[in-house]
């Protein structure tokens, strides 16, 4: 009691060292994170904003060139346009297909089949491996001219397939396939979402004679909408950030003929192959704005199709 009274007394004056100490304490405990955040996140982010207005080749100090980098990007850089095209093509196929596939597998695994725990783990494995260099190398082997895929095609149907990864028409779709194959994490989230749906709704529906498909469309999909939305936002952001597979499969070039020039790969080339750190920083900021606007657009349109259970409407 006396101690409590004492602190209150000093608190009233507000100037004693004990009080200041008390105020600083939380920051002291936060310090490890705070120092890390300022030094390794905030600092570099601000530095990159500054660099985006400079010309900087690492060996000489940066020189201020105003908005030249941004002007060039939007008026004179056809590879920037190509990088956007490739990235959007990739997103357009990758996000819906991956979500559909993840949902399909989740719905199947949701039924209490024997060993479903095992299958759940099994289907998650590609997501653990997928981002790795080894898998990208494996993909190269699979879709090469005389790779496994073509050998199977030849054996089954007698078709001689093209070299999927070295053909500018098909290269990006092998990367889409690689991404879809890593459906594990949205699948797990869908599974959790499916468990939240009250079973009595399905019982009532089947009493009324609704088919499985109708139940899926009228019960599962609407009640799962918030989860689908969450997964979609995550996948769009992930998709914009895709880098490793394109880098490994094209040997860092984004080839053939820039057909796998992902935005991040182009950014990397500008920074570390041509040493235009300033331009690369500007590219990074534009990517940030693109991702931010896509995410906010998703949130703005979500009220038309995402319904929350506790929502009054």
């Amino acid at each position: 009691m006396t101690i409590a009274a004492g602190t209150q007394a000093t608190g009233a004056t507000g100037r004693s060292p004990g009080r200041d100490w008390g105020r600083l304490m939380p920051f002291l405990f936060l310090a490890p994170w705070l120092v890390g955040f300022v030094v390794f996140t905030l600092g570099p982010v601000l530095a990159s904003l500054y660099l985006s207005f400079t010309k900087f080749d690492l060996l000489r100090p940066p020189t201020w060139i105003g908005t030249d980098n941004y002007v060039r990007m939007f008026t004179a850089d056809y590879r920037f346009v190509q990088a956007l095209k490739v990235t959007f093509t990739y997103l357009l196929f990758e996000v819906p297909l991956k979500l559909a596939f993840a949902l399909l597998v989740a719905v199947i695994l949701d039924k209490a089949v024997r060993g479903s725990g095992f299958y759940r783990a099994l289907f998650y494995v590609p997501s653990l491996l997928g981002g790795s260099v080894a898998i990208a190398v494996l993909w190269r082997q699979l879709f090469d001219g005389n790779g496994t895929v073509n050998r199977v095609l030849l054996w089954l149907f007698g078709i001689q397939g093209p070299s999927w990864i070295s053909n500018p028409d098909t290269a990006v779709y092998t990367l889409v396939l690689l991404a879809i194959w890593q459906f594990g994490s949205p699948m797990i989230i869908f599974l959790a979402g499916l468990r939240q749906i009250p079973q009595d709704l399905y019982e009532a529906a089947s009493m009324d004679g609704a088919s499985k498909w109708r139940q899926f469309r009228r019960i599962t999909l609407p009640l799962l909408a918030p989860v689908i939305f969450f997964n979609m936002v995550l996948q769009v952001i992930e998709g914009f950030k895709a880098f490793t597979p394109a880098f490994i499969i094209s040997g860092g070039t984004g080839g053939p003929v820039d057909s796998t020039l992902f935005y991040t790969l182009y950014l990397y080339q500008e920074a570390f192959a041509y040493f235009r750190m300033g331009y690369a920083a500007a590219l990074a900021w534009v990517l940030l704005i693109i991702i931010a606007s896509f995410t906010s657009m998703s949130f703005l349109t979500s009220k038309y199709w995402v319904h929350y259970e506790d929502d009054g409407r």
Binding site: G145, P162, S163, I165, S166, S250, G251, P256, V257
Partner: peptide, 14 residues
């Protein structure tokens, strides 16, 4: 042809 050429990334084994 182009499909063979395009896979030469410049490392010795390619």
């Amino acid at each position: 042809p182009a499909e063979i050429g395009a896979t030469n990334t410049g490392s010795i084994d390619q």
